[in-house]
Simulated scan of single mutants.
Amino acid sequence: MERALLTVEDAEVLNHPLTLSIALVWAISVFLWVGDLARAEEHIDRLFSRAEFHSLGPYLALGRGFKGELAIRRGNASSGVESLRSCLAELHAAPYELLTTPLNISFVQGLAATGRSAEALSLIEETIQQVETSGDLCYMAELLRVKGNLVLAAPQAGTDEEAELCFRRSLELSDRQGARAWELRSAIDLAFLLAARGRHDAAQALLQPIFARFGEGLETADLQSAARLLATPN
């Protein structure tokens, strides 16, 4: 978060609108990631004003997409889904594909939150295939984690096993990439699944060493979720 803010400050000094827009995009991504929605909204508004004033079309679309993700996080999934649908259509038409994968993830989560689980699962499968084809593998661990949760929510038999496979594949990939934040999220979801099956010791053994690697940011959403799970009595 500190690095993101410093990058925005440095970009402002340069007085180069495109560079500042890029810095704001990544700062917004960081704030959404850690759950600081108020600061994310502040930077989304700054992105809108800069992009609109300098006619930076793709960045206006990104701003709408971030607004959509913010709406979903705040419980207004229907509005968020429509914002993301519009944003992604504009980015595909531009074409500007740099952030379409993480925006697709938000879109999927919004669809699931509005009860369109089949559409959400279809989109996550499509996005996974696109990532495998394009080599945009930095998002694969999160795609697998989100797929695991969608599968887990389905009413069919055997979903627990398929979801666990998704979570374990996500863990393996994030560990191989050194992506500790992706790894933490997948470990939390798998630990919840194990605990729900009564395998509390296995859940604790999985999550504790991953949680222990983090020496800062303990007030952020994912680490708080992990701490609550670890503190839950068997």
Rank of each mutant, 00 (worst) to 15 (best):
R176W: 00
I28N: 11
E41S: 14
S29V: 07
G65T: 05
N15C: 02
P155I: 08
S21A: 15
L190Y: 06
D201G: 15
E90K: 02
G215N: 04
D222I: 00
V30N: 11
T133W: 02
R74P: 01
I188V: 14
E69W: 01
L14F: 02
F66S: 05
A203H: 12
E9Q: 13
Q204L: 09
R50A: 13
L37P: 00
G57S: 14
A77T: 09
R46T: 14
T114K: 00
S186C: 12
G63V: 00
G178H: 05
S79C: 04
E97D: 04
L207M: 11
A187G: 07
E162W: 05
H16R: 14
M1F: 04
F167T: 03
T220I: 01
P102V: 00
T7L: 10
K67A: 02
L18Q: 00
L91P: 10
L223G: 07
G178Q: 05
R50D: 15
I124V: 15
D189F: 08
C166T: 00
P58K: 13
L37F: 05
A11N: 02
S170F: 12
L103F: 09
E164N: 01
R46L: 13
H200S: 13
R3H: 01
V108Q: 05
T232M: 05
A187Y: 08
E216A: 08
E41C: 10
R64L: 12
I105Y: 02
S78V: 09
L143P: 05
D10Y: 07
Q177K: 11
S170V: 10
V25M: 02
G148H: 04
Q130A: 10
W26Q: 15
A181D: 12
E52K: 14
A40E: 06
Q109D: 09
A191Y: 13
R74F: 01
G148P: 01
S122F: 11
A181Q: 06
P209R: 11
P155C: 04
S122V: 08
Q224K: 07
A154C: 07
L190V: 06
E97R: 10
L144M: 14
L5S: 09
I210V: 15
A179Q: 11
A212F: 07
E219C: 03
G63C: 04
L24F: 08
F214W: 10
E2L: 14
C166I: 00
W182H: 13
N234A: 09
T232A: 02
D136E: 15
E82R: 11
G35C: 08
L207K: 14
G35H: 12
E126R: 15
V131Y: 11
K147L: 00
L184K: 07
R185T: 00
S79Y: 01
A27Y: 06
L32E: 11
D201R: 15
W26S: 08
A226Q: 01
T114D: 11
R197F: 05
E183M: 13
L193V: 10
I72H: 03
P58H: 08
D160E: 14
L121I: 12
R197M: 09
F48M: 11
A40V: 12
V34I: 15
R73V: 04
E2I: 10
L5C: 00
G65V: 02
Y96P: 01
L229K: 01
L37E: 02
A23V: 04
D36L: 10
F53Y: 13
P233K: 04
Q177T: 09
A27M: 06
E2T: 09
I22A: 07
R185K: 12
L223Q: 15
P102I: 01
P233D: 06
E41W: 09
L193F: 07
I188K: 06
L230K: 08
H16K: 15
V108F: 02
